[in-house]
Nucleic acid binder design. Structure first.
Length: 688
DNA sequence: GGGGACACTGTGC
DNA sequence: TTCCAGCACAGTGTCCCC
């Protein structure tokens, strides 16, 4: 059935699709015989010229810049730098090696083409035919017949149909999948009552105790469990058995579908297994990281992570480097983590791109209502609301506001969401989303006791009842399938960087004060008063502007009216505010005229002020760094001078006002931050 | 300097 | 004909306050 290879002899210049990197040609179970070139060409031809394609091209270009920047940083490392970081890396590897735990046996079970298999169970006529679950815009999964054509999950339906014209589309039916998922979980429970559901169709089981109690091997458990799942559901699954979850997950993919792979709990077996393993097989290493590691360091296999450990430690942050080294050693999570609770809840909807404000407002009303309903169902209230927008050109923006009070009602959500949206208008968007985070539970000690997760006091009796039914998220003997489903939803699922996380300090940092009590009438009066402050002090003005930009949180009683007149008010103030902010920033930025010989380096590498490590020959970066500290000092002095000009009353009011409004939009930087020019941005930057 | 808030990116299913 | 999702989470940078 698989298409034959085509175009292999054509010159590369006539094959522009080769430069269009999609995820659709990556190895996935059931796609071994696929003509990747053909898939790539069709995807390219159906995508080129579209806004989506242009955005992908932009992202690709960004990635290239990242790679180039990192390459140049890498090239700057001298022999002595490399030697320095090699010592650091060797020490870290030794430390990591001591954490190796070969005493546990983990089993990862993954249902085969789950949604598609369930649909085939309920409609036998689909058997043997190429089928995808999803619609024309996106498909969720495809059966193995469809995969032979290159059709796969997360592929737009219209492209899938082009690849396989006979493809049958079946709409998604989560109710059905949840039912079958529950059945599989009842089986998993027999082997590990605390098993970790990673999604509807995946789970991790610690089978150490089962193996020892019944004196059977991991392979035998896997065999038996798979058979039992088949008997109970009629569905097949694949399994991987290994000393940790990271490896078990990799193993379950090896003999998919309906197979299993066992990695013995021996160091030599793990090291051998990992040595030739492509890095992309590791959960947490995606397209971008794979490319960076390959292009900058020439790393393709996990073993090479160790060979390049010095440069990795030199150019990546501590946690990223630790993750890579762990992967190189074949380490992964071996403990059963405590139940985690969800950290955010969100919804988002895609629609035809529009800039019609009435329509956008209608969307935001719907989203607010949906989010509120979801929050009530789970007994949540939160104080950080994030608006997500995807522009017509696929650019994603997020705008957030953190409130004094915890909210959950659609009215409250809408009130604040509307303000965030208003600040972005006019805009043409194709997706809008709302996310709530910073849940109340984070702050009142409920984390320690999962059974107290409810917020019944917050809601009426009806809601409280619902909360109780849904939220007794306990991992124990009485755990049932619905609870486990909830666990998945609440984040019991494994995270992508579990290795990283395991290495970090897990001390509870949720010691945040609940500021809700601040919302007294006195406080409101002070806010009002602060609004009337004389605006002769430029910084007062600035703060006011900043806060009103992203935290338009004067939150006065006429909010409802303001929402109603959203469209009318569009764009009236934000531009002016931005201009004023920029003006301030520029003024501040131009004030620096200081001694650039400011020397602060100790031990050749370390900044004596902040401890940042920058190699000696990174002259420009070092200069920027010392500039930064100098500017920081200037700023401090200016700020002190300014404070001195305010009366006591003004200072008190201003302090209250700032606290109550939260922080405003970020000001433009007035001096380079330490490490700004060090290894590029975000994930790839070295922490200072 | 630590940490909260915000913006953005990367990842996986 | 249809034309690239929805959700959750982690990590990092940046700005800012205490």
């Amino acid at each position: 059935m698989a298409a034959k290879n085509s175009d292999e002899t054509a010159p590369s210049s006539s094959r522009p699709w080769q430069t269009y990197h999609t995820v659709f040609t990556n190895a996935k179970a059931g796609m071994e015989g696929v003509d990747k070139e053909k898939v790539q060409r069709i995807v390219y031809e159906m995508s080129k010229g579209s806004k989506y394609y242009e955005n992908e091209a932009r992202k690709e270009a960004d990635m290239k810049v990242k790679i180039e920047n990192m390459r140049s940083q890498y090239a700057k490392l001298t022999a002595s730098d490399i030697s320095h970081y090699q010592k650091v890396a060797d020490k870290r590897i030794l430390e990591l090696e001591t954490t190796r735990d070969l005493s546990r046996i983990w089993l990862h079970v993954d249902m085969d083409a789950f949604y598609a298999a369930v649909e085939t169970l309920s409609d036998q006529s689909l058997k043997g035919k190429p089928m995808a679950v999803g619609g024309m815009s996106m498909i969720s999964t495809a059966n193995y017949e469809a995969r032979k054509f290159g059709v796969r999950a997360a592929m737009p339906g219209f492209i899938a149909r082009k690849l396989c014209p006979e493809l049958i589309f079946v709409p998604v039916d989560f109710k059905k999948y949840t039912h079958y998922s529950d059945l599989t979980r009842k089986v998993f429970q027999r082997y590990d009552q605390n098993f970790m559901a990673a999604s509807l169709d995946e789970a991790y089981l610690d089978i150490t105790d089962v193996c020892s109690k019944r004196a059977i091997t991991g392979a035998e458990v896997a065999e038996e469990l798979r058979e039992l799942v088949y008997v109970e559901t009629g569905l097949t699954c694949s399994a991987g058995v290994a000393p940790n979850r990271l490896l078990a997950k990799v193993c379950s993919d090896i003999n998919k579908p309906n197979g299993q792979f066992i990695l013995p709990n021996e160091r030599i077996a793990v090291v051998t297994f990992i040595s030739s393993l492509p890095i992309r097989k590791i959960g947490g290493i995606g397209k971008v990281t794979e490319n960076v590691l390959k292009e900058v360091f020439g790393i393709s296999t996990c073993e090479e992570m160790l060979q390049k450990s010095g440069p990795l430690c030199a150019l990546f942050s501590h946690s990223s480097a630790a993750f890579f080294l762990s992967v190189g050693l074949g380490l992964g999570g071996t403990d059963t983590p405590q139940a985690k609770f969800r950290k955010s809840i969100s919804n988002e909807r895609t629609f035809s791109a529009t800039k019609d404000e009435a329509l956008l407002y209608k969307k935001i009303v719907e989203l607010a209502e949906m989010l509120s309903a979801d929050m009530k169902k789970e007994g949540l209230s939160g104080r950080t609301l994030t608006l997500k927008l995807k522009t017509a050109s696929f650019e994603v923006r997020t705008r957030a506001v953190t409130l004094q009070n915890y909210i959950y009602s659609s009215e409250d959500i809408l009130k604040h969401a509307s303000k965030l949206l208003k600040a972005e208008l006019p805009i043409s968007i194709r997706l809008m989303g709302l996310r709530m985070s910073h849940f109340r539970e984070d702050h009142d000690g409920f984390l320690g006791d999962p059974t107290q997760k409810t917020l019944s006091s917050f809601f009426g009796p009806g809601d409280a009842k619902k909360v109780k039914a849904d939220d007794n998220v306990t991992i124990g003997n009485d755990v049932d399938a619905s609870c486990l489903a909830a666990n998945k939803e609440t984040g019991l699922a494994l995270d992508n960087h579990e290795l990283c996380c395991d290495l970090r300090d897990h001390s509870d940092t949720n010691q945040v004060l609940d500021h809700s009590s601040h919302t007294s009438s006195k406080y409101c009066m002070e806010m009002e008063e602060s609004d009337k402050l004389p605006s002769n002090a430029s910084e007062v003005k600035l703060n006011s502007l900043n806060t009103s930009r992203h935290q338009p949180s004067s939150y006065k009683s006429d909010d409802a009216q303001e929402i109603k007149t959203l469209s009318r008010l569009v764009g009236e103030s934000s531009i002016g505010q931005r201009l004023q902010q920029d003006q301030f920033s520029n003024n501040a930025g131009s004030s620096s005229n200081y001694n650039k010989e400011f020397s602060l380096w100790v031990d050749d590498y370390k900044c004596s002020l902040c401890g940042a490590e920058i190699p000696p020959n990174f002259i420009e970066e070092r200069q920027d760094h010392s500039d930064f500290h100098f500017a920081e000092r200037l700023q401090e002095e200016e700020s002190n001078n300014y404070n001195g000009n305010l009366t006591l009353k003004q200072r008190i009011v201003e302090k209250e006002r700032i606290r109550s409004h939260g922080r405003g939009k970020k000001k433009q930087k007035i001096a380079p931050t330490p490490g700004k020019h060090l290894p590029i941005d975000v994930f790839f930057s070295k922490r200072t």
